[in-house]
Design a binder for these strands. Structure first.
Length: 262
DNA sequence: TGTGATGTTGAATG
DNA sequence: GCATTCAACATCAC
């Protein structure tokens, strides 16, 4: 689930659920997804603190603490947040939760344990060390986009998925962008005409913004979007058949005749 | 029972 | 150091 629009929705949820509530207690059921700290140390760091806000870059969500430190929430493939009141309402695969003074609990659910949680004292230093690119929706400008692609030779899809170049595009939205631009996802970055680059940039912005506006709720996406035909053998709106392949190591769907290979 | 999954990473290669 | 590829990570649903 969690690509940029999904994490944006999680951010809104997190802000509503956690902001300005004193963390009375922290319970850790499984500290596998918490990096650098064991469960007890994590509990010590967070207990008694309050989230004052949040910052999102791509798929990375940083909860701002009142001491100036941050809590990184990366949802991996299956991370989710749930605010609840009674212990028995805890999500099935809860790895930890914050118990607020209000009596509510915010649980972090994660069946597949690909999520990453990290306590960060210096956010700017972390972002720099991590080499995380600008947020594809809110921070990436055309000029920067032009600069980033210089010297690259891989596939367009691989480029869009690389979080060091731009942060936030995942497998589904990468396919969506390629479809809407009528470009084969395995097209080489260095062979794409200038005009197409402009189109990729604009479509990407439009797709992400539209998805964010609809709270990443797929069923509310425009009727002519690709995702609903993203199935092998399906018939795309233009009549071409959807093909399945692998690009940049990821399962990829595209409309054979509709998307041109550069 | 086997397979694949909307993400990241470190190792390996060029 | 950079660009790119790819297997590995842990678990569940189909």
């Amino acid at each position: 689930m969690p690509e940029l629009p999904e994490v944006n929705t999680y951010q809104k949820y997190f802000d509503t659920a956690a902001r300005n509530k004193l963390i009375r207690e922290v319970e850790v059921q499984d500290d596998y997804i918490i990096k650098d700290l064991n469960g007890a140390a994590f509990r010590e760091k967070l207990r008694g603190q309050t989230f004052s806000g949040s910052y999102r870059r791509g798929k990375y969500l940083f909860g701002e603490l009142d001491n100036g430190h941050h809590l990184l929430l990366h949802f991996g493939m299956s991370g989710d947040l749930k605010l609840y009141n009674e212990p028995e309402e805890a999500p099935k695969h809860e790895r930890f939760h914050f118990a607020f003074e209000s009596g509510e609990r915010l649980g972090f659910d994660c069946p597949r344990k690909f999520a990453r949680i990290r306590y960060i004292e210096d956010l700017q230093a972390y972002l720099k060390e991590k080499k995380l690119g600008p947020d594809a929706l809110n921070e990436l400008e055309w000029k920067t986009f032009q600069e980033i692609r210089q010297g690259k030779k891989g596939t367009l899809k691989g480029f869009l998925l690389n979080q060091r170049y731009l942060a936030g595009v995942g497998n589904l939205y990468a396919d969506e962008i390629c479809y809407q631009c009528r470009i084969h996802p395995a097209s080489r970055v260095d062979r794409l005409p200038e005009k197409k680059w402009k189109e990729v940039f604009e479509k990407m912005k439009d797709i992400l913004q539209t998805a964010v506006d609809r709270d990443a709720y797929y069923r509310h996406y425009p009727d002519d979007w690709f995702w609903k035909w993203r199935e092998e053998g399906a018939e795309a709106p233009d009549g071409s058949t959807i093909e399945k392949t692998e690009v940049a190591g990821r399962t990829t769907y595209f409309a054979g005749k509709w998307q041109k290979r550069f």
